[in-house]
Design a protein around this nucleic acid. Structure first.
Lengths: 244, 244
DNA sequence: TAATAATGTGTGTATTTTACGCAATGAAAA
DNA sequence: TTTTCATTGCGTAAAATACACACATTATTA
C-alpha cells in the first residue's frame, strides 16, 4: 500500500515540491481505454453510453478513476475487465489529457491506454451501458473530450502498425493474406498492391504457413497463416518500419 | 477556473464513474520536464539536486505538482520557467508514470514532458538546487524513479530524431554539417559515414547555405547552414523517417 | 464447361541506400 | 616556403529495396 497521506498539501510539504502550500481543489486521475477491433473488414472501437447524466446520450470511452493503491497499468486492465469482462490482452499507454475544463464535474486528468484485439476471439462478457463495437468511420457524438482522445489514439494506431506488426492481434489465430491486407487497408485507409503487400510480409518472415486453406469462401481459397510471435520477439530490434 | 469540488468523492458521484464511492487517499499529479541540450559534442540533460530531504544527495528532474487551474502543457512550461528561467521552447508530452510506490511521500502520478534546446542560445537564468547540464552518459544517482523516466525519454529522443529533424533545435542557428553529424552521432550513439550523412540531409532540402564559413577551426573550415523551418513545416507530412 | 473472382508467382525498372575514392582547402609543422 | 595533416566537398558504382505490372492457377457458380 502507498503511504497514507491525509491530503494533497501534506504531499506538497513532504516532497518539498515548489508550489506554495495553498488550499487547492483536488485533482482527480482517471484511466481511459481505447480498444480497437476488426470485423467484417472494418476497424472498430469499443464504446459505451456515458454514465454521466448530462451526457447520457453521448458515447464514451471505457474509463474509471484510478484507485489509490493501483498502478496505472493495473488500473487500465481492471477497467477493461470490469467494463467488458475481457482480460488476456496487451494494453499500451498512449497519452494523458488534462485540460482544465475537459471534465464537467471537476478537474480530472485522464491517462489513456490503447489495445488491439480480435473481436471473434474476445467475446464481450458484459454489455452494460450499451457496450458495443462501433465503426471508427462513424465515431461521433462523444462525451467530454473523448472524440479528441479517440482521434489521437487512431493516429497512434496508424503509426504503430507501421513500426510493429501489431495488426496480427486484430486477426484470428489463422488468417489469410487477404484478411491481413484488408486489415492494414482499414487501419491506414489506403489501397495497397496485393502482390507487393504479399512480398513485404513474406520477407519479414513472421508468417507461418499452417498448411490449411480457407473454408466457405466463394472463390479460390487462400492459404492460412499464423503469426510467429517467437521469431518476432527475437528480431524486433531490427524491425524499424513497415512502409507502404 | 475549474469547477470547484470539495473532494474526490464528489467527483466520483458527479461523474458516475464506476468505482464504489469510498474513503480514499488522494492521488496527486505532478509534471516533470526532461530537457536535452548539446554542447562540446556531448548530449546533456538538465538536472537539479532533489529538494526532498531524504533524497538530498540525489539528482532529480525538473518537476512540480500540477496546479488545479492549470492545463498539463501550461504546467510543464511554468515549471521550466520557474526552475530555469527558460521560456520560448517547445515541450512535448512523452509518458506518464504512476507506480504506487514511486514517490516516498505518497501517491503521485507524474506526467513527463521532453524538450531539446541549444545550450548556447538558452542560458539558464536560475541556478538554484545546483541546476546544471549533465552528460547523458553519466546520469546516475537519481531520486525516486527518475532514472527510469530519464531512460524512457532518452529512448523517445532517439526515436524522435529519426522521424523528424528535431535535432536542429539543439544546434546554434548557424552550424556546420560536421556539427550536425556530431549531434546525431551523440544522440543515436552510432558512427555515420560523413559523405552519406551529407547527401541525406541535402536531399531533405531543409538546409540553407548562409554563405559563411566556420571561424577559428584548426582545419579547413566548413560552410555554415541554417535550418529552413518554413520549408520543413510545409513538407513534414511527406517526411516519415530519417534512417541511418 | 465457360465465366468469374480470387490466389500465387514472377519480372523489370526506378529509387534509395551503402561503401568508398579522391581532389581541394586551410592550418600547422618542418 | 614547402610539406604534412586533418577535414571539407564532390562524386561514382554496386547493392538493396520499393514499385508497377503480367500472367498462370484454382476454386466457385451459372
Amino acid at each position: 500500500m502507498a503511504q497514507k497521506v491525509t491530503n494533497i498539501n501534506s504531499i506538497k510539504t513532504l516532497t518539498g515540491l515548489r508550489s506554495e502550500v495553498e488550499n487547492v481543489d483536488d485533482v482527480a486521475v482517471s484511466v481511459d481505454c481505447v480498444i480497437f477491433g476488426f470485423d467484417e473488414n472494418k476497424l472498430k472501437v469499443l464504446l459505451i453510453r456515458s454514465d454521466l447524466e448530462n451526457f447520457q446520450s453521448k458515447w464514451s470511452l471505457l474509463g474509471d478513476l484510478l484507485k489509490p493503491d493501483e498502478d496505472l497499468d493495473a488500473s487500465a486492465y481492471r477497467i477493461l475487465k470490469q467494463r467488458t469482462g475481457l482480460s488476456d490482452l496487451y494494453l499500451e499507454q498512449v497519452h494523458s489529457f488534462g485540460k482544465v475544463h475537459r471534465h464537467p464535474a471537476g478537474r480530472v486528468i485522464t491517462i489513456v491506454y490503447c489495445s488491439l484485439i480480435n473481436i471473434q476471439n474476445h467475446r464481450l462478457k458484459i454489455l452494460e451501458n450499451e457496450l458495443h463495437w462501433q465503426d471508427v468511420e462513424n465515431v461521433t457524438d462523444m462525451a467530454f473530450d473523448h472524440k479528441i482522445i479517440f482521434d489521437n489514439c487512431y493516429a497512434w494506431l496508424q503509426k504503430r502498425v507501421q513500426e510493429h506488426p501489431l495488426g496480427f492481434s486484430l486477426l484470428p489465430r489463422k488468417f489469410s493474406l487477404r484478411e491481413l491486407q484488408n486489415l492494414y487497408e482499414a487501419i491506414l485507409n489506403v489501397k495497397l498492391d496485393r502482390r507487393n503487400f504479399r512480398k513485404k510480409f513474406f520477407s519479414m518472415d513472421f508468417l507461418i504457413d499452417i498448411g490449411e486453406i480457407e473454408q466457405n469462401v466463394r472463390h479460390r481459397p487462400g492459404r492460412l497463416y499464423r503469426f510467429d510471435y517467437e521469431k518476432y520477439e527475437k528480431n524486433k530490434k531490427k524491425l524499424f518500419k513497415i512502409d507502404f
